[in-house]
Design a protein around this nucleic acid. Sequence first.
DNA 1: GGTGGTCAAGTGGTCAGACCAGTTGTGGTT
DNA 2: AACCACAACTGGTCTGACCACTTGACCACC
Lengths: 240, 240
Amino acid sequence: MALRPVTRRSVSDQVFDQLVDDVVDGELGVGEPLPSERRLAEVLGVSRPAVREALGRIAQTGLVEVRQGGATLVRDFRRAAGLDLLPRLLVRSGRLDTAIGRSVIEARAEIGPGIAALAAGRGGPALATGLDAVVDEMATVTDAVRWQVLALDYWDLLVDGADSMVFRLMFNSLRAAYEPALPALATILADEVGQAEPYRLLAAAIRAGDAPTARAAAARVLTPTADTLLGALAAMGDDA
Amino acid sequence: MALRPVTRRSVSDQVFDQLVDDVVDGELGVGEPLPSERRLAEVLGVSRPAVREALGRIAQTGLVEVRQGGATLVRDFRRAAGLDLLPRLLVRSGRLDTAIGRSVIEARAEIGPGIAALAAGRGGPALATGLDAVVDEMATVTDAVRWQVLALDYWDLLVDGADSMVFRLMFNSLRAAYEPALPALATILADEVGQAEPYRLLAAAIRAGDAPTARAAAARVLTPTADTLLGALAAMGDDA
DNA sequence: GGTGGTCAAGTGGTCAGACCAGTTGTGGTT
DNA sequence: AACCACAACTGGTCTGACCACTTGACCACC
């Protein structure tokens, strides 16, 4: 019996979801006005405060622009939204957007080595020891999902070692985007389970404080999985 | 007569600002409960809906966790927040945080070349022509702020050419972070005004579809300004 | 023909007070 | 000691009212 926490969605959460989807899917064109708060409340069968709470969060996301006295206008999220929007773009109405998935994988492969290089210069042996501990556990694991979780833990440590708030926040945003899809990812990447050697080499480069080697080692960690995932995405795209 | 738009801050905006600052500055420790909504409303002299709108946005940012029935708890934003929080971390209570400024500059220098490489593979001559147009204008400009704005326009085009939603959203977040500081940046980088040649070389590499050369050219665009800015930040840090 | 003033209608901003729903701690019961 | 019931919190939602602002139409006036 597999139990999972009950998820309760508040009214304003549901309004938020619905409006975000409408804006992101382009059902509401850029520059067009949203219905008034009162009208939305009436149509959706909720109170105005509930609508307002949702709209306030949507405005913060950069999807709309609200102006007192005037109508609330739809903005171009490609220009105005920040990385926090990524999770909602990646899986849209239950389906994974392959183009966005591709960009996530590319960004991961592009940024990871930079993080490793910074961490090599700043983490020191303490970081390397922590990484090795994770790798030791990875080497013994057989469950594909557990493997992915440990890989995330590994990168979490690495990002800490890079001592960069920007990369930390980027990592958080990216993790939030693909954590929901982690079980699916684990299946696609099942063949990689147990191949801990690249991770160990990266940790060694970190211990040595060798930034260029760490950069290359990180690329060797990331590139194979990136290729596998891009291949899987391409296959999905063909189906659709 | 230099006129600028009047900025009106709503009550819930002010509550939002205040609470974000308190959490980010660590005045409210991680795991600690916030005062109840009713209490906050009373203490701040505003209505409960206003407090709720602010809290909802703060929760979305990942700074707190609200649970019906229980208290609202402070989370560790280093773990939970996304890149959208960056602007509020970079300038905190009017002051620029040098450690975070450093990480922004590092990230820019690290990611820029990757974007250029992607754009070289996807942008084509059309992109290069657009870039050249911006460079042509840069070459004629003498105002330092105007120069920075054009540089941003240049990168905006480049990011479009990379055809990557993740990099686009990252760029938006980073731009949101340092756009407020742009006048100050322009002063520090005044010496770079007019030096458009690196930008032109990058555009040429894009036109040729030569990703490795584009990567190197982007590094040559970014590294000098990064060094200058890091130096300025270090000087600021010494003062404090 | 353009300028500025006036006004009504519609929009978002804020408030007060009430009630529902869920959590937590307390104290009694077994 | 384990369990349970209840009271006193917490956040969630609604209603209806009023304020502040923008918009557009209309109307003088120059």
